[in-house]
């Protein structure tokens, strides 16, 4: 006669070891996947950003209001910078969330750090998005239009 012994950590015998059921769903897996997908795209977007802004022409000397205005007069760079803003902020926020989860041991500390993190992320993403889309590359200062080859005469 043989006796069958259940696995001691099966969900039936030890509910605390249950690995399915009331969980957070796929969130952590999706976050893991997002880090890899956004990472690849960000390598392209940020390397392009650094190359165009720092290495071409006069490099950093060329950066002033006119430089930014010239880029954002073009929808190509608006979309480029918008994608970079959103992907980098979400990628960075998820990274910092992971670090908070790893090192903050108290529940309340983790909660507060994440509240501050998500508030900062929201402010920066909303602010950056509004700036890209409400920006006027051809402002008129004291009745005088700023020079810019991309502005209507």
């Amino acid at each position: 006669m043989t006796a069958t012994i259940d696995s001691p950590r099966s969900g039936k015998n030890s509910p605390q070891y249950r690995r399915t059921g009331a969980s957070r769903g796929n969130f952590e897996m999706l976050a893991w996947l997002f880090m890899r997908l956004s990472g690849v795209v960000l390598v392209v977007l940020i390397f392009g950003h650094l190359f165009v802004n720092l290495l071409v022409g006069e490099g950093i000397h060329a950066i002033d209001f006119g430089f930014v205005a010239g880029k954002w007069a073009d929808p190509f760079w608006q979309i480029w910078d918008l994608a970079m803003l959103w992907l980098a902020m979400l990628h960075g926020t998820n990274g910092v969330r992971t670090i908070i989860n790893d090192y903050a041991e108290k529940d309340s500390t983790r909660l507060w750090l994440k509240i501050v993190l998500y508030a900062a992320t929201t402010v920066i993403i909303v602010l950056g998005t509004l700036v890209i889309f409400t920006f006027n590359p051809c402002p008129v200062v004291d009745g005088v239009p700023l020079p810019g080859g991309f502005c209507p005469a």
């Binding site: 002033d64 209001f65 803003l85 902020m89 920066i124």
Partner: peptide, 30 residues
């Protein structure tokens, strides 16, 4: 990663100055 994240927060804020005025942005970048 952490260094880049904190720089990014500041970088969005300084770039946002283009929306304040051309002088403000150029002064800070200067």
């Amino acid at each position: 990663g952490v260094v880049i994240f904190f720089f990014l927060l500041v970088h969005v804020l300084d770039t946002s100055l283009v929306r304040v005025s051309p002088e403000a942005y150029t002064a800070v970048i200067g």
